[in-house]
């Protein structure tokens, strides 16, 4: 088991494009940390630097206190799961799983026993003699996970492992990853662009933007207290209000950090009166299944309001209330 200390990691391609920009991050032993961000934010590059698939240009990565910058990829003893499953197409499931074990100095009996154990805990025992192309996507990704875990890695790296699966399988597989990670207490880094799957299983989330970490926090804190406008937008805050304007109206809001902008989720704005009120006119109403969404034109622009009940109709003049605890101040960036 291992903890990881990443400090001042930078990476750029020849054309001068900065992929990672002085990034530092500590991952605790046995923790499941997600790296969340839009495509191109550098999250996959970071994972590949940790795995050793690409060499470090600047900065250091320490695993259990030891600098691994000079350790070649095949000696790091990590497990990795790829988006494309990346199974060995010419080997059976059993051979796929024993491949990593055979690279270690173990006797035949031991290899076989370890492979059978891992097949058992991943529920793949009945598929061991099949070829990868005979398996469904979900089964293939399960094999890929089993192959990574078979070598008893010190760190498990997951590179968008659920992206190629359909919605139902994605939830099933995410639970499976979580279950195995908890069972084996393995330090895990999970790269994804999907906030739901990341919030569901992570101990902590590092939200990345343009090669830097915007916020590192528990899923609950990121959801409830985003620090920057980027984080707020990424996790579904859609209404932004100038703090100066709010102060001029003597509005009360959740003060935690110092900035110029306030934000609130569409579902937290109430239709009716309360402490922070603003009137507006409904310019559109949409039924979106489990909620209604109204676009309300106000003196500070068009706001999005979601309610579970049908509370108004197009062209109606309404009063909106912004509950103090849901109106969050953001840091300038």
């Amino acid at each position: 088991m291992a903890n990881i200390e990443i400090s001042d990691l930078s990476m750029s391609y020849q054309k001068g494009k900065q992929i990672l920009d002085g990034l530092s991050l500590d991952i605790k032993d046995g923790e499941l940390l997600s790296i969340l961000g839009p495509s191109g934010c550098g999250k996959t590059t970071m994972l590949r630097l940790i795995s050793g698939l690409i060499p470090i240009q600047k900065g250091t990565i320490k695993v259990s206190g030891k600098d691994i910058s000079k350790v070649p990829v095949y000696k790091r003893n990590f497990g990795m799961v790829f988006q494309s499953y990346a199974l060995f197409p010419h080997m059976t499931i059993f051979q796929n799983i024993t491949f990593g074990l055979k690279r270690r100095k173990l006797d035949k009996k031991e290899i076989e026993q370890k492979a059978l154990d891992i097949l058992d805990i991943t529920g793949l025992s009945n598929l061991k003699d099949r070829m990868p192309s005979e398996l469904s996507g979900g089964q293939q990704q399960r094999v890929s996970l089993a192959r990574a875990l078979a070598i008893n890695p010190s760190v498990l790296l997951l590179d968008e492992p659920l992206s190629n699966l359909d919605a139902k399988l994605r939830i099933e597989m995410r639970e499976e990853i979580h279950r195995l990670q908890q069972k084996l207490k393995m330090t895990t880094i999970f790269v994804t662009h999907d906030q739901e799957e990341c919030f569901a299983i992570s101990d902590r989330v590092a939200l990345m933007n343009q090669g830097q970490i915007e916020q590192l926090d528990t899923p609950q804190n990121i959801y409830k207290n985003p620090r920057t406008e980027f984080v707020a937008r990424f996790i579904g805050y859609e209404n932004f209000i100038s703090k100066e304007w709010a102060e001029s109206k003597q509005w009360q809001y959740h003060k935690d950090i110092e900035g110029k902008l306030l934000t609130i989720r569409p579902e937290n704005i109430e239709i009716g009166s309360g402490e922070n009120m603003l009137s507006g006119k409904v310019i559109s109403k949409n039924f979106l299944g489990n909620y209604y969404q109204y676009l309300v034109e106000t003196e500070i622009g068009v706001l999005k309001v979601n309610t579970t009940e049908d509370q108004s109709s197009t062209n109606a003049e309404i009063t909106l209330n912004f509950p103090e605890q849901s109106l969050i101040e953001l840091e300038d960036k």
Binding site: Y74, G79, A86, R103
Partner: peptide, 29 residues
Amino acid sequence: LNFEVEEAASVIGARPMIVFFKVILPQLS
């Protein structure tokens, strides 16, 4: 060939020679 298959092999401990002979070459047969 899928690039990631070779990467997967090296992450779990295969040296470049092993990757070539056990992973790349058989797929080229």
